[in-house]
């Protein structure tokens, strides 16, 4: 990989064209099986989509919960897909990843996930998804380039409750943010299915969560990338 090139994600730029999904399946390390996730956030309420690649955590939870030492991290910090001889298909990594990235391929008894197009990036080329993304939601290049051209700021730290996670992949966020804090209370339904109030969910949640969650409640989330969890 060109040493100063990094991966940047800006989900708000995603237009849901699926070019990344198609291109991802061309990667040699998992040919024919796209690893990028492209979900509708709330399909019934809008067309917002969420592209998610592996964020390549500095201390990957997926690798630490693997009972078979199947997930390795290389010296550049890339967290590789499960080693085929070792993976025992327990799904620990699928459930533990805070970004919801690993995919369990039930038929193969094997976890597979984005490996930052290892065959390409190790040879100095762009990952497939970033190479074809028409809207710049997925960008691979020097940090200076994206800092010059965007008003958002790249960060690679996330706060999940009490857990701080540092990643190799960056997400674009507001200029005054150094960390992207994940809030869940505002995005939970306010009532349980049996209509009891759910005290964990705060009133005054943003509209996006509000209307859409109830639509999703009835219809279920639609997914563009259909690989099973």
């Amino acid at each position: 990989m060109t040493s100063n090139h990094e991966f940047f994600i800006d989900p708000s730029r995603c237009i849901g064209c699926q070019a990344c999904v198609q291109a991802c399946g061309e990667c040699e390390t998992h040919r024919g099986v796209p690893m990028i996730h492209l979900d509708y956030v709330e399909r019934a309420a809008g067309v917002q989509t969420a592209p998610v690649v592996c964020m390549h955590c500095e201390d990957p939870t997926c690798a630490r919960v693997c009972p078979a030492d199947a997930i390795k991290q290389d010296d550049r910090g890339v967290v590789l897909s499960a080693a085929r001889p070792r993976c025992i298909a327990c799904s620990n990594c699928v459930l533990a990843c805070p970004f919801g990235v690993p995919k369990m391929q039930v038929r193969y008894d094997l976890m597979m996930k984005c490996d930052l197009c290892y065959d390409r990036t190790s040879a100095g080329r762009k990952p497939m998804c970033a190479a074809v993304c028409p809207s710049g939601a997925l960008f691979f290049g020097p940090r200076e380039d994206i800092e010059k051209s965007r008003r958002e700021k790249p960060v690679n730290e996330f706060q999940f409750g009490r857990q701080r996670v540092r990643t190799k992949v960056n997400i674009m966020t507001a200029p005054d943010n150094d960390v992207l804090s994940i809030d869940i209370a505002d995005f939970l339904p306010r009532e349980t299915p049996d209509m009891h109030p759910r005290p964990g969910a705060r009133p005054g949640a943003p509209d996006a969560a509000d209307a859409a969650i109830w639509n999703e409640w009835n219809s279920g989330p639609a997914e563009l990338a259909t690989a099973p969890e």
């Binding site: 989900p11 996730h37 919801g100 409750g161 674009m172 507001a174 992207l180």
Partner: peptide, 26 residues
């Protein structure tokens, strides 16, 4: 009151949480 463990949110919703929180931040 109380606490929620992120394990109680499914992987697909964790990906949506990332997009929703990112959207709110920007």
């Amino acid at each position: 009151p109380g606490e929620i463990h992120y394990q109680d949110i499914c992987p697909a919703c964790r990906r949506r949480m990332l997009a929703l929180n990112h959207g709110r931040a920007v």
